[in-house]
Write a protein that binds this DNA or RNA. Structure first.
Lengths: 232, 232
DNA sequence: GCATGGATGTGGATGCCGTCCACATCTGGC
DNA sequence: GCCAGATGTGGACGGCATCCACATCCATGC
């Protein structure tokens, strides 16, 4: 379509990954077909082998990109929760005239920091689950590669430079720091949280909850998130 | 190898599923290749189409078989836990001479039933995770089909006629019956448990915990199971 | 006892896919 | 301005899923 005036400088690599992401979005990891990606990039199949040793290598790059999308979705819900918190605190302050609006944590209940940290963790879980539901193909592709240990690799991060897994871990650190989680339970707790949220995601997009009504889904998700909170 | 003296009577169907299970065991769902399965059954590729409309249909049947294997593994650990419990109770009774050995739940602590029910749930979770680790290819194949809602289908059960999911639900019912889980939290709690244990399984076989030492794995698993218990 | 029709397996072909090898072309550094 | 290495092209191979037409077999009904 658009003139490509040569693919030097590694443009083809990016074009192939972008095409692969679209394929994954529409059909999951199995739909990431090397020949189709090259076709969309307006190039002959073999050209891909100058940038990826394998189909698996292309899929792996697509997977990284998908993980980055996941991380961005979580950043988004996290930021949203933060602004909600500010608004809510402001409203509280407004309803209590004379309170100091600038020190948010000091004027609230003693464990305001803990509830805020809990809200952040919940926001991250919501972001994770929301992404899985909004982009099931991308979500599956993100975890399709057996070498998914690269969850913490370079290209799999959001705008803030953190991976999805890292964001969960950081939220747990915050919970521990403000005393909401006993320190002796902190190590390894990201596995619990990640496992639960990831399992819930697969339950929602591939499992028995697949065709539930949105309200029922919402209820099940809320219930699971509460159980996670109790389990920490 | 063995003479087949005709495949009438649907023998070929079973032969193909068996071959598919072996392929899945060795290489996961993608390794379930229709032509290879027919080759192993000593038959021409097209013969498969008399019994399965599709490659996907074959994979689906293999998936059911894999789910049955999972259910059997869980039945096994459950039975083991039951016998352990008997032995332990017997030992307790022996150390307390004069106690009645025949009524196990009556002579123990007030919540003996609850601890036993907890032990059963833990045994099921161990069975789930153990199967995933012992047979990762089969485990992945079990959940490869998008239509995995058939988790509660005919052929996916163990010897006792229950699916893996059902066994978890029954254990939760027992926990509720003996008061270990508040009744208002019971509905939907199987999603929490299943999600956590399933997510943990994928973490163990595909994720960052993949190359952990067995002792570390054991510790992480124990920790997650405790968190589940708290979360219920 | 035997014909017949539906179920089951065979043969051959098509089109897509991943991947390999040899060749063309472009481009940055000398 | 030339050359070497990087990049894209052309053509080919074997494997796969799937389709159509044909062969064979077995149970059923006469």
């Amino acid at each position: 379509m658009t003139t490509r005036d040569t693919y030097r400088h590694g443009n083809l690599r990016h074009a192939l990954i972008a095409a692969g992401v679209e394929l994954a979005r529409a059909g999951g990891p199995d739909a990431v077909v090397l020949r189709e990606a090259t076709r969309r990039a307006g190039v002959v199949p073999n050209a891909a082998y100058r940038h990826f040793t394998d189909r698996r290598a292309l899929l792996s790059a697509v997977s990284q990109a998908a993980l980055a999308h996941l991380a961005r979705a979580m950043e988004h819900t996290l930021a949203q929760a933060a602004s909600d918190e500010v608004n809510q605190s402001a409203a509280q302050a407004a309803s209590r005239p004379g309170a100091d609006t600038t020190s948010l944590s000091a004027d609230a209940a003693p464990d305001a920091a803990a509830t805020a940290a809990h809200a952040r963790l919940r926001a991250l879980m919501r972001g994770y689950l929301g992404f899985a539901q909004a982009e099931p193909g991308l979500f599956r592709a993100a975890f399709a590669t057996t070498e998914m240990a690269d969850t913490d690799a370079e290209a799999a991060t959001g705008a803030g430079g953190r991976t999805a897994f890292r964001m969960l871990a950081d939220a747990l650190d915050e919970l521990t720091a403000c005393g909401a989680v006993p320190p002796e339970r902190r190590p390894g707790s990201e596995y619990f949280v990640w496992a639960t949220v990831h399992g819930m995601a697969t339950l929602l997009i591939d499992g028995p909850l697949r065709h539930m009504l949105p309200t029922q889904v919402e209820e099940a998700v809320a219930q699971v998130m509460e159980a996670v909170g109790r389990g920490l």
